[in-house]
Design a protein around this nucleic acid. Structure first.
Lengths: 145, 145
DNA sequence: TATAGGGCTTCCAAGCGTTGGAAGGTCAAG
DNA sequence: CTTGACCTTCCAACGCTTGGAAGCCCTATA
């Protein structure tokens, strides 16, 4: 299989497949004499795995760990579970943070008349009124997608 | 005021202040004869505004719009409110998406024994078992922080 | 006044994950 | 043999932030 077909079958773009190879997330593909990358059904499976993990918000380095466990026949399911729970924790933290942003914004927006007058509590708050609504935890490491 | 002091007062790093100037989010600062950027209290206020907006999850281009309204004495509060509500919408969409990820992961993790055996429904799902739990909406444009 | 230290300047690079394009080689069908 | 779809590599950008290096400026102290 060429890269295009694998891309279609796995849902991972050809660009990304090359990138994953380059960064070492996936092993280097075989090559035809003319230099084309060649793939098998196992590769499609692996790329689907990656895509699915990304859809669940895993970062690439965490996916690397998942892949290692996936390949390891003697893995302990506890290790997989731990990675999943770490991801759940990251997601929950991020959700909490964003919910606090929504709460703040919502409160401000409700106080705003939303007409043609210039007075606006939203701007007033941003400007630094000390009547802060929520502490707006700004925070930790970046997040994907 | 030099850039370092403004950075401290506003909570925006000197690096970022230069970056914001470079990208046109804020106007170019004045310079001393020796090339140092000079700032006033108004600049501190503007940078605090920016920082606060970023804490609320606004992207830089949206902050540009907010700043324009902030400077515009004849603005309509409706315009500000609309920006805030758009941001609320973006946050809510993202939250929903992440909640669905959490739900899926949580379900999978609960089905995982988490001991030293290799069998693991989490990996099985990632591998592409068609017993998908949640459709895991993968989605829209990237998100900051 | 000389010197040390801190602050300032610029430029360049990396990080995340993904996409786009350009320039060129390869494969299939017509 | 030509055409068009596919593949290759390399380079760049997106948004936001941080880091470093090289070099100039300012101030205080010895």
């Amino acid at each position: 299989m060429n890269i295009g077909e694998v891309a279609k079958d796995s849902g991972v773009s050809a660009k990304m497949i090359r990138y994953y190879e380059q960064t070492g997330l996936i092993p280097s593909a075989g090559r035809t004499t003319s230099g084309y990358r060649t793939y098998t059904g196992i590769d499609v499976q692996m790329l689907r795995f990656i895509r699915r993990a990304r859809d669940l918000g895993f970062q690439v380095d965490a996916i690397g760990e998942l892949l290692a466990l996936w390949r390891d026949r003697s893995r302990h399911s506890a290790d997989v579970k731990q990675l999943a729970q770490a991801q759940i924790g990251r997601l929950r933290r991020k959700i909490t943070e964003m919910e606090s942003m929504v709460a703040t914004l919502d409160h401000l927006a409700q106080g705003c008349s939303g007409d043609d007058r210039p007075e606006c509590p939203i701007l007033a708050d941003l400007e630094g009124e000390d009547s802060r609504v929520a502490p707006a935890c700004h925070s930790g490491q970046g997040f994907n997608r």
